[in-house]
Design a protein around this nucleic acid. Structure first.
Lengths: 249, 249
DNA sequence: TAGTGGTCTAGACCACAGC
DNA sequence: CTGTGGTCTAGACCACTAT
């Protein structure tokens, strides 16, 4: 919630106003010049705030006319995207976690490519069963490069949010690439989730990197149907979402 | 490809340089001041260009150190996200389309909510079977509000890209909200796609809006497994992706 | 301490929408 | 034509990283 920069504060205020329907009559916001005077800042600062809202999908923008308020889905913290536990709590659900297995293991081809390590490099693999309100919801298979693995390995097996622990130790997660598609339950999935082998699961694969661009984790999460959905806003101005051929990239 | 603004040209050049591994030795880009001199523009313009690349996931940024080039998945046009045909062609696949049914119909509750129309308002419904290289790939059920429907209705039934046609008539699509999850084939899906009823399908629901924020289409697309995957980049700086409880929002 | 990106200002001109 | 957002400039100061 803390946001020092003026433009972030202004963005928060405007976002709240838009969500509360402040500008619902036609949906048009005040002009940039008007907002600048209202907040006592320069137009540039107002534009920075509005750029945030445009990227979120909270407002549109178009040369010649005032900005328009959009109805948009509720926002999620970046952190909620990386941490199952944080996400669950934000949804009012009780997260649970059971570590099924963890081990040091040489990197396979996919892991090596995703973590940008030579094949066979030592990495730390963890398989966890994630629960929502006590019921199995997702199987998570994560691989950490050696340096990160050495921080993860000593954590108690029932650690809820590894992500939060990593942040506490100073590992910063700033960017992630996600791929979402469909897969089928293998025998281990089936046993852990309590579904039939071969049953369809929603799959998210994710590579997370730190500010230096170095991969911090590579994870494949498999959700039971009906548990979770991904949402994303895309706009001509700010791309980001993509549609790819199966199993890519 | 055309990009008038200087910062867009600079962004394109830098993107190309990064993708070609220009800055791979450690991955650090020149300083903003350096780039400004190199391109003969002010630092502000360079920063605009870099903001584009940061939002894409092409570079990171962090106070105190130079920017770092990220390995990131290939980019997709916003247009490719909205148009199945355009996307297919960009993947080197031959798109096909068969209109299964189209009709004027009063809006149901979901349609009304998504298109922000009163329940029972007339809208134009279209069901299409989409093909890739001649094989069934996806079933698309789209609803258009009346004004848009009147533009879509007269199009020939085998029109490949309705989206492209709409743009040609001056309908601008600028923003979209996507929800991705898993569903099961109903009898119509099964017949069209040639799968078993009850088989799992990857589902994308999408509301597209114009620059004024008015909904232009509401669509539910159901893909056969193995045909398609969604990718998205998320970062602490530029949120956008979300994870939601099932069936929401 | 030097270099870098983050924030903010004050002004200018342009392209486009809508009257 | 007027008002609006889009682009660009030239400068300033600050917060942070790395040495």
């Amino acid at each position: 919630m803390t946001a020092q920069a003026r433009y972030r504060l202004i963005a928060e205020e405007l976002r709240a106003a838009v969500r509360q329907g402040e500008y619902r009559d036609g949906g048009r916001l005040p002009s940039e010049e008007g907002l600048a005077q209202q907040y006592g800042v320069s137009r540039g600062t107002v534009r920075q705030a509005l750029a945030v809202l445009r990227a979120e999908g909270t407002v549109t923008s178009r040369r010649g006319t005032r900005r328009v308020a959009l109805e948009s889905p509720p926002l999620h913290d970046f952190a909620e995207l990386l941490s199952f536990s944080r996400w669950a709590r934000s949804q009012g659900l009780e997260p649970g976690s059971r570590t099924v297995r963890q081990e040091w293991h040489p990197a396979g081809p996919e892991e090596a490519a995703q973590l940008r390590l030579p094949q066979g490099a030592q990495l730390f693999r963890v398989v966890r069963l994630r629960l929502l309100d006590g019921r199995p919801a997702m199987v998570e298979r994560t691989a950490y490069p050696q340096a990160v693995g050495e921080l993860v390995a000593p954590l108690p097996a029932d650690t809820f949010s590894v992500t939060e622990q990593l942040e506490r130790v100073g590992v910063l997660l700033t960017d992630a690439d996600h791929t979402v598609d469909l897969t089928v339950a293998d025998p281990q999935d089936a046993e852990l989730l309590g579904c039939a082998p071969g049953a369809a699961l929603l799959r998210e694969r994710r590579r997370t990197t730190d500010p230096a661009g170095a991969p911090v984790e590579w994870s494949e999460d498999r959700y039971l149907p009906g548990v979770m959905a991904f949402t994303v806003h895309s706009s001509r101005a700010v791309p980001g979402l993509g549609r790819h051929s199966a199993d890519g990239p």
